[in-house]
Simulated assay, not measured.
Amino acid sequence: MELEDRLTAIEERLAALERSERTPTGASTSGDLWVLDNIGDSVVFAGDVHTGAGHAQYQWQRPTEMLLDADWAPHLDRLATLAHPVRGAILRRLLDSPASATELVDEGLATSTGTAYHHLGTLHAGGWISKEMGGRWSVRTARVIPLLTIIAATEDH
Rank of each mutant, 00 (worst) to 15 (best):
E155C: 11
T25P: 05
A83G: 11
V105C: 09
M133H: 11
A83I: 05
A16L: 10
L109G: 03
H124M: 06
A153G: 15
L109Y: 13
V105E: 05
E4Q: 13
A83H: 12
F45L: 10
T149W: 06
R62K: 09
S130N: 05
E11V: 05
E2V: 02
W72D: 13
G88E: 14
K131G: 07
E12T: 13
Y58S: 09
R87G: 06
E155A: 14
G126C: 07
V35P: 01
D96Q: 14
M66R: 10
L68P: 01
G108Q: 01
H84N: 15
L14E: 10
S30K: 13
F45E: 07
G31F: 04
V43H: 07
Q57F: 15
Y58L: 10
V86R: 11
A83V: 08
N38M: 06
W137F: 13
I145M: 04
G47D: 04
L147G: 04
H157G: 09
A53S: 14
S138P: 03
A46C: 12
L3I: 14
S130Y: 07
S30E: 14
L17W: 10
L148I: 08
P24G: 02
T29G: 07
H50N: 10
D41R: 07
D156L: 13
M133F: 10
D71W: 04
D71N: 12
E155V: 11
V49T: 10
T122F: 00
L33V: 09
D37T: 12
A142E: 15
D156E: 14
A46Q: 11
Y117D: 08
R6H: 10
V86Q: 08
S28D: 13
Q57V: 15
V105D: 03
D96A: 15
P85N: 08
A15P: 02
S42C: 08
E12Y: 01
V44F: 04
A110R: 01
D156P: 07
T141S: 14
I150P: 00
H55K: 11
R78Y: 03
R6A: 15
A125E: 10
T8H: 12
R92A: 09
E18F: 06
T115Y: 02
G108E: 02
M66H: 09
E155R: 15
V44R: 09
H157V: 14
L104A: 03
D77N: 07
R93E: 13
S30T: 09
S42I: 06
A142N: 12
L94G: 00
E12R: 13
S97V: 07
S112K: 03
H55R: 15
A73W: 05
I129S: 02
A116G: 04
A53H: 01
G108L: 02
L76S: 05
S130C: 08
V43P: 00
A153Q: 12
T29F: 05
T141F: 02
W72A: 15
